[in-house]
């Protein structure tokens, strides 16, 4: 038995608040692994993604949910994220194994902190910090965008009619939470 044991303390762990009928919470065990498609072998990488997740890698700015619940997000022509629930610190290995070396993988789990915003007040709150047009005609379910909110780089994904997943850098998690909380309390 090792003498010492490490305890996981993600920055926003356990955060869960409601503002009117809108809920803001930090999803537990959110794992993120980035994919980069090798130059010249993009098709092989995309095929590997399809066979691993049963769904095509979407176009840039879009995401899809695979059969196993993992969300595939395409961030650019040669880069994407796999976002899934995974408690142990081996998310990268799990994805790499499924893709069998067809894409370069990097663990991004601890690079980011996640907040889920769900409820009728979501969009009005986000209008205060998000420069992206979140009207459902312009930003439908599954749409994803990297942008800047309150000086913080943020990845926003629409997961439902009134639900968004927001990812921002974990080191500035407290400032990020404050930005979203303030937006909610200002609009609720």
């Amino acid at each position: 038995m090792p003498e010492f044991k490490l305890i996981s303390t993600p920055p926003l762990a356990g955060y869960d608040q409601t503002f009117g009928a809108t809920r803001l919470h930090a999803p537990a065990d959110l794992a993120i692994v980035s994919l980069a498609f090798p130059l010249g072998d993009e098709n092989a990488a995309l095929a590997a993604v399809k066979s691993a997740y049963g769904t095509d890698m979407p176009e840039p700015g879009r995401s899809v949910v695979a059969k196993d619940g993992a969300r595939l997000v395409r961030l650019g022509s040669d880069q994407g994220f796999v976002i899934f629930t995974h408690a142990t610190p081996d998310a990268e290995r799990a994805v790499a194994k499924q893709l069998n070396g067809a894409a370069y993988t990097t663990d991004q789990t601890d690079v980011w902190t996640g907040l889920e915003l769900a409820g009728p007040g979501s969009r009005a709150a986000l209008e205060r910090i998000c420069p992206i047009d979140l009207h459902p005609d312009a930003f439908a379910i599954g749409h994803a965008a990297r942008t800047v909110m309150e000086h913080l780089g943020t990845l926003i994904i629409r997961t439902d009619d009134h639900a968004f997943l927001l990812l921002s850098a974990s080191s500035s998690a407290q400032s990020f939470l404050h930005a979203v909380e303030t937006s909610l309390s200002n609009t609720t």
Binding site: E3, F4, S34, A36, P38, L39, G40, D78, Q79, Y104, T106, D107, Q108, T109, D110, V111, W112, A169, S170, S171
Partner: peptide, 30 residues
């Protein structure tokens, strides 16, 4: 046309300098 890919992992890893004559002895325990 180089096959090279970059992604920041600054926030992803907690990195500690362990320095001094006993650094190895300390790390051996961990």
């Amino acid at each position: 046309n180089m096959d090279v890919h970059l992604i920041s992992t600054t926030d992803g890893w907690a990195q500690f300098a362990v320095a001094g004559p006993n650094a190895r002895n300390l790390l051996r325990k961990v």
